[in-house]
Design a binder for these strands. Structure first.
Lengths: 138, 138
DNA sequence: CTTGACCCTGTAGTTCCTACAGGGTGCATA
DNA sequence: TATGCACCCTGTAGGAACTACAGGGTCAAG
């Protein structure tokens, strides 16, 4: 029910130093301490750190992670504020899903051609290719 | 048909300094120069830089971006090498799609509850919550 | 009671940009 | 022709987000 920093790190795939860093910058609250001055964490911190790490893995910078966390931290916000914040992030999430889906297609196609024994043309760059500035004929 | 570094930056949403940085670390080849010593780029560089930026936005570190680019750069690789590399990245891409989809659901739910006029409980942390270590009962 | 795995605080290094400083290019326009 | 102004050049230094020690304390096992 209570973990050490090392256990929390293992459970979330985070280096111990990184957890202390997040505490230092205020992304994680200062945890309880044991009699021997060891940090002691519960399941709430496990969830929060897990969220942070996965959001980071998805390319969100820490200031955006902080904003996302504030959606659940700050129960005093009014609807309009929450709405605007969530809407922006939703748009970004959807954009990323589109890009990842294109990348997945291209990696799949590459694997399929490999299965046939030949390397085949790699169009992986085209998968995430030029910005969708409508109307260009490059 | 040929762009300056500033145009390339605008087209890909990249700062000029970042493009020069990518050149310095060998992620982009040294481009042609004009008579006035300006860098001159073509559409190949536009595609490549676009790919790099979007892969970065999706959370891939530069060494992985380099590996992905090598799939299309290195025409001498054998199938087994390409296969292993592509397979690893495909797994990671799929994992990210799962996470982003969960995050999208949670943000949508939050927006829906807002639309109803109430802030509603935010389960955004749960969306990307603890690692899927099967069998835990926290 | 000591040994090894873990924890503590600090600080310095790495990655990936980002922002000047100090100077040159190139095109419009007065 | 000159004189802006926006853009380019090569540095180098700063910032964000970690990551890796150094030097020392804690604790369960043997």
């Amino acid at each position: 029910m209570a973990f050490t920093i090392g256990e929390l790190g293992k459970a979330t795939g985070t280096k111990v130093e990184t957890i202390r860093y997040y505490e230092r910058i205020g992304l994680l609250a200062k945890p309880e301490r044991t009699s021997g001055n060891y940090r002691s964490y519960g399941k709430a911190e496990l969830g929060r750190l897990s969220f942070i790490r996965r959001a980071r893995d998805l390319g969100f910078p820490l200031h955006q992670v902080r904003a996302l966390l504030s959606l659940s931290d700050d129960r005093t916000r009014d609807c309009a504020t929450v709405d605007a914040l969530a809407r922006d992030h939703l748009a970004e999430v959807e954009r990323k899903i589109v890009d990842l889906t294109a990348l997945r297609s291209e990696l799949s196609a590459l694997l399929d051609s490999c299965e046939g024994g030949t390397v085949g043309d790699c169009r992986i760059i085209e998968a995430l290719a030029p910005p969708a500035t409508s109307g260009e004929t490059l």
